[in-house]
Design a protein around this nucleic acid. Structure first.
Length: 370
DNA sequence: CCTACCGGGCTCTGCCATGACG
DNA sequence: CGTCATGGCAGAGCCCGGTAGG
């Protein structure tokens, strides 16, 4: 309501009149939500950022408030990152994607960097992660929490090698509050105990080292997935325990809905191919990654293999063939059909090899034929 | 030498919602 | 209210090669 405002501004404000005004709160709401009166962007800052090649549109969309700040440290940040070996383009991209990075002080940056360096051997490793995911490095301003995370994860027996992998592959883990990480670890330990496991800390450690992403999942999701697996596969406690510390650790990543969907479509598909519930169960126990494959994909792969004359039983016995892309499988099947390869007689192991080995084998087989 | 078995490598961010705080 | 920090979500596989054991 600019008109009203002008009038008010143009006269000496009469306190008694203002206070008795019934719409006072609404007036102030309008006052602050009026675009023309909102705190303006810092023109000087905008100029600086433009000079640096920052994508202002992107920055504005992500964290508009930063552009209105009067005190920022973009020059310090640029100097700092340049010193660590980042290119201009990298820095511009980092700021564009996570503008708040320019609010971090020199001291803060130094301290955070040295904490990361306690895990990484080189600056360039860190730079590449920063470039990949600026948010992972800059989202939290709490260096003490970062340090406590490192201490905590070490204390539960995560070794340097795994710590390194964790920070490389799931850097967000280290921006979680140490409490959140502790909750997940304790949750995993509780799962182990409730399943009758004897070594809860070993169990939690095993899952974390098998699945670097586990600590950036919610316990809600992980819990739902574990319960679903036990019920739908009718697993005994010890079977579930083994699955989880084995390949099953990765299934916990799936969104719960996707896990359910992938499971039921896989089961339906196998049913149509003449398999029973037990076959599904065994397949998942021996090759749980199958649950990662989307319905259309898995269906495609199975069709592709069975149409080439391969028995479903053979696939269930050698599920790793499902690891390969449909394109790859198709190509291999085609090559094999050219030399009249008989899967019934020779088995399907030939499909489960690296391309190099497959080609070598293929060459030998064709030579034999001639 | 060959194969079957197995483990490991890559890499997963960018967005939104919410609560704390001033 | 604006801003920051933090939690949580959606999206959805493929490939290589060491090596033990024949």
């Amino acid at each position: 309501m600019p008109l009203l405002l002008l009038k008010v501004q143009g006269r000496p404000i009469h306190l008694g009149w203002l206070v008795t005004l019934r719409s006072l709160p609404a007036f102030f709401t309008r006052l602050s939500s009026d675009d023309s009166l909102a705190r303006p962007e810092n023109e000087c800052l905008l100029r600086n950022l433009r000079m640096l090649g920052v994508d202002l549109k992107m920055a504005r969309k992500r964290q508009p408030g930063v552009l209105r700040k009067s005190v920022t440290n973009e020059h310090g940040l640029v100097r700092f990152l340049q010193d660590k070996g980042a290119s201009q383009a990298m820095i511009a991209s980092i700021i564009s994607r996570f503008p708040r990075s320019i609010t971090r002080t020199e001291d803060h940056l130094k301290e955070r960097w040295s904490l990361w360096r306690s895990i990484f051997q080189s600056d360039s490793e860190i730079i590449s992660i920063l470039h990949r995911s600026p948010e992972s490095f800059f989202r939290s301003s709490d260096n003490d929490n970062l340090e406590m995370n490192i201490v905590f994860l070490s204390s539960i027996g995560i070794e340097a090698k795994d710590l390194h992998r964790l920070l490389t592959t799931a850097p967000r883990t280290f921006s979680n509050s140490v409490e959140l990480n502790r909750q997940m670890v304790e949750f995993l330990e509780d799962v182990c105990i409730s399943l009758g496991g004897a070594h809860p800390n070993q169990f939690a450690k095993a899952i974390i080292s098998r699945n670097a992403y586990i600590l950036i999942r919610s316990t809600k999701r992980v819990k739902a997935n574990i319960e679903f697996l036990q019920v739908s596969l009718k697993l005994s406690d010890s079977e579930l325990l083994n699955l989880l510390q084995g390949h099953g650790a990765e299934i916990l990543d799936l969104s719960h809905e996707n896990l359910k969907r992938n499971f039921s479509t896989l089961q339906d598909k196998l049913l149509m191919l003449g398999c029973g519930e037990n076959d599904t169960r065994r397949l998942i126990l021996t090759y749980s990654q199958v649950l990662f494959v989307s319905p259309a994909r898995i269906s495609n792969k199975l069709d592709c293999l069975t149409k080439a004359g391969i028995q479903v039983k053979q696939i269930l016995h050698k599920p790793k063939v499902l690891d390969f892309s449909v394109e790859n499988l198709r190509w291999r099947l085609n090559e094999l059909s050219k030399i009249d390869y008989d899967f019934g007689k020779s088995g399907i192991n030939i499909l489960d090899t690296s391309r190099k080995r497959f080609e070598a084998k293929l060459e030998k087989l064709s030579a034999c034929e001639e």
